[in-house]
Design a protein around this nucleic acid. Structure first.
Lengths: 200, 200
DNA sequence: GCTAGAAGTCAACAGCCGTTTACAAAAAAG
DNA sequence: CTTTTTTGTAAACGGCTGTTGACTTCTAGC
């Protein structure tokens, strides 16, 4: 019905994918990030990733070597907490909370990928080291004394916990937008840690 | 070398497991809880669970029906936040923090099992509903206004985030005991939420 | 136009998965 | 003692996994 003339002997139907290696590579990476973030390492299959990128699983291997190497490439991207670590310390809580509650859920962000790596025997150590080096350390340096590392760890725990329940265990209490009570509570909470956290 | 007389024709070596159905069942359940908590649903195999319980995978199926039913049985146990929700609101933060930082890591607790269910297509909904019904709701009822549900969600996020990094992504900053700076920071943080959390 | 190599597809591999079936042995019932 | 039921094992099933090698097909260089 679509094509009338020209017997389609060697053209199955659709255009057979433009041969652009660079774009294909980035499409694979994007598909991998989406699936690693939503389903986790074990549940994201190579065939599934390849299908999402519109290609064949063999090609994924040719571009990235193995599933583990693909995962490594997928987390070689910034976590995104850096932009908040500026000189303005008074409103950073509100900014971070607004950022995380405005993000569309089920997005392919690095934090989700890393959180999903928990307990995966193949990639757990990778994720742990990356979080320590790229999040905890810069955050602690930015926070400064007292108890910089503990406060940085606590901040990461708050953000990760909230994000985990928004993304992967989507309970009703976490699914709202940036103007909900939870978002403002989270903002206050983060600000409280940034401001120094008086003794309990 | 061990046995001298009596040709061991029909006794391979060790005693062939005492036939106690009730104990076998509870051993399977314990092994399943340990492996679900440490490796997650997808990475905990039936053969692995059976081996940890000292039996055959077929027997696991006979006792519990399927892997999913085994998981359901494994989370049919209290989360353990209930004991803290008593009349003493002034020190609950310290008590919860001390409890979680005193627990041995890699223990087979229900919270770890549920957090590991994030993104698992087969059991994610189950875990979400259970956390909402057994944690968020009683916690919100105990906290009371203002913004009870948001504060309950935030508390769950703080505890879950900290516990996740202690158990499954064991970074150095989280691996200490109950007398570390992080534990006292967490106690202060929890107490701050319990006390009402002033506006940001 | 011809050729070399890049880009992509296809089918198959070995290995693991949850589950099932068939069977052995111990205990209990008669 | 014989029979039945319970408790356990052994082996296999189909299906899915990551990965491989042989094979097309398009494109760039001479």
């Amino acid at each position: 019905m679509a094509q009338r003339k020209s017997p389609p002997r060697r053209r199955p139907a659709a255009a057979p994918r433009p041969r652009d290696a660079e774009q294909t590579r980035s499409e694979i990476l994007h598909a991998a990030r989406v699936l690693f973030a939503t389903r986790g390492y074990a549940n994201a299959g190579m065939r599934e990733i390849a299908a999402a990128a519109g290609i064949t699983p063999a090609l994924v291997v040719r571009y990235f070597g193995s599933k583990r190497d693909l995962f490594i490439a997928a987390i070689e991207s910034d976590i995104g907490l850096g932009p908040f670590l500026g000189p303005d310390r008074a409103t950073v809580g509100r900014h971070i909370a607004r950022y995380f509650f405005s993000k569309p859920m089920r997005e392919a962000d690095t934090l989700s990928i890393l959180l999903h790596a928990a307990g995966e025997p193949e990639v757990c150590d990778l994720a742990t080291e990356l979080l320590a080096a790229r999040v905890i350390q810069p955050l602690a340096r930015w926070l400064g004394p007292p108890r910089a590392e503990a406060r940085a760890a606590l901040l990461l725990a708050i953000i990760s916990g909230t994000w985990l329940f928004r993304q992967a265990l989507p309970m009703r209490a976490f699914t709202g937008g940036p103007d909900t009570a939870l978002a403002s509570c989270m903002a206050a909470q983060i600000q409280h840690v940034v401001d120094g956290l008086p003794e309990a």
